[in-house]
């Protein structure tokens, strides 16, 4: 996973190159959106007309697809992204309690980013880690059997790194 702090700011030429790389695939829009988010950390608004043009869609259609999917961010995330599972198996192991501890500690709500821009906490519904619940992906790395203490430690370690 690329270091989010090293992500480039909006670059229309880079965006056009990414779009051109995928435009010939059947059903290209989702792969392109993933690639744009991988590059920029979110899907920047100026990409919408470029996508519409390349794929022969209206801007409204492109906007409709971006906003339908929970994954695509409209704004850059923090330098570290914590994806915390809120689904039933994690609930059964006090996942909500663990999550609310972290959110309180960071002073943010679900989907929020700390004021220093270091951590974003996003909800996910199932990571397939249901027998080692509660679970999270921190910067793409899996962590299971979380407690409020262990999760705080993992997040602090990521922040210091």
């Amino acid at each position: 996973m690329p270091n989010p702090s090293l992500r480039p700011t909006w670059d229309p030429f880079r965006a056009e190159a990414i779009i051109a790389d995928h435009a010939q695939m059947p059903g290209a829009l989702l792969p392109i959106l993933h690639a744009l988010q991988e590059e920029f950390g979110h899907v920047p608004e100026p990409a919408v007309p470029l996508l519409a043009d390349a794929l022969n869609l209206s801007r409204a259609e492109v906007h409709g697809v971006i906003t339908f999917y929970h994954d695509f961010r409209h704004d850059p995330a923090g330098r570290h992204v914590v994806k915390l599972c809120r689904a039933e198996a994690c609930q059964s192991m006090k996942g909500e309690h663990t999550a609310s501890h972290l959110l309180r500690r960071l002073g943010i709500d679900w989907g929020g980013t700390t004021p220093d821009g270091s951590v974003t906490v996003e909800p996910v519904y199932c990571l397939g880690l249901c027998a080692t619940a509660p679970a999270a992906l921190v910067d793409g790395e899996p962590h299971g059997r979380l407690t409020p203490e262990s999760l705080a430690g993992i997040v602090e370690e990521a922040r210091r790194a």
């Binding site: 059903g27 829009l29 989702l30 794929l55 697809v65 339908f68 999917y69 994954d71 695509f72």
Partner: peptide, 26 residues
């Protein structure tokens, strides 16, 4: 291999097909 984008409903077969076509997973 194609990858979804966090929409549970895309596990429904017709929504999945829409998503594969690059559309909203309706």
């Amino acid at each position: 291999l194609r990858v979804g984008a966090g929409a549970y409903v895309c596990g429904e077969e017709t929504a999945l097909l829409e998503s594969l076509e690059g559309k909203r997973g309706q």
